[in-house]
């Protein structure tokens, strides 16, 4: 199986550690993973801010770059949802606007073979115990697009529950949005910050030292709030926890 890592533009630019963790994890599980250098951005920010037409060439580019692979794995719930939920919708809108089926047929092949990381692990590889070791108290925030658009359900927490040494504690109000929302975070900064602060307070109330999520965009907002408050709690991407082993521990 030819597996491609779609790291996302945010992770590539700002969170390379998450990318290295995914590679390390997948290779440990025997997956031969490739990083196609032509990859850029799925177009989510364009689409969600109202620039659907600008997102179309990015979607076509995505489909070309990942055409030759059997599976595309991404460590981002929202970018995964962009491909799986919104690419078909973009094609349908183009059709409704009288622009034919060319966008739909260009995007159709990549849609069903794109997986968010925990889906790929649990559904495709069929594993929940990935031999990880992470001796910390962790609370998990299910990000909105992973939770509601992709329906990741208990996949992330099932994976976390199998990590040796990890003490998983429940996050109160876990399914409430952290307030990031892409451009929402700067278009409505006061509400966004208030939501972020409430999320951080809820996480701190658990006594966990680590706030885990499977989307670094949300963690950028939550982590930025934690840092501004000088909180001792650290934001960590799920992939980095799953990549951590007794031999090679993530600090």
């Amino acid at each position: 199986m030819r597996v491609a890592l779609f790291l996302t533009c945010v992770n590539d630019t700002l969170y390379p550690d998450t990318g290295r963790a995914v590679v390390k994890l997948l290779e440990r599980l025997g997956v031969d993973v490739d990083f196609p250098a032509g990859q850029t951005c799925c177009g989510q920010a364009h689409y969600n801010t109202g620039y659907r037409h600008r997102a179309e060439p990015l979607a076509r580019h995505f489909a070309e770059v990942f055409a030759g692979y059997d599976a595309v794995v991404t460590p981002s719930g929202s970018c995964g949802a962009m491909v799986r939920e919104l690419y078909p919708r973009m094609g349908a809108r183009a059709r409704a606007e009288g622009r034919g089926t060319s966008l739909t047929s260009a995007l159709a092949p990549v849609v069903p073979k794109t997986y968010e990381l925990t889906e790929f692990l649990v559904d495709v590889l069929g594993v929940t115990d990935v031999d990880a070791y992470y001796p910390h108290r962790v609370t998990y925030h299910p990000t909105c697009h992973g939770l509601r658009s992709l329906g990741l359900g208990e996949r992330p927490t099932r994976l976390l529950a199998q990590v040796k040494g990890l003490d998983l504690v429940e996050l109160p109000g876990a399914d409430e949005c952290c307030g990031f929302g892409g451009t929402f975070s700067v278009k409505n900064p006061d509400v966004s910050a208030a939501m972020g602060l409430d999320k951080v307070r809820a996480a701190e109330s658990t006594g966990a030292g680590v706030l885990c999520a499977a989307d670094n965009s949300c963690l950028m907002h939550i982590g930025g709030t934690l840092a501004r408050l000088d909180s001792a709690m650290r934001p960590v991407h799920l992939a980095e926890i799953l990549a951590s082993t007794e031999e090679e521990q993530l600090v």
Binding site: D12, R20, F35, S185, P189, G196, L197, T225, A227, R228
Partner: peptide, 21 residues
């Protein structure tokens, strides 16, 4: 609008694609 309430993420020494290369 961002930095009034949140720290900016630190830009890493190299992007992932350069590490991969």
């Amino acid at each position: 609008a961002w930095s009034d309430s949140r720290e900016l993420p630190k830009v890493p020494a190299e992007p992932f694609r350069d590490w991969w290369l």
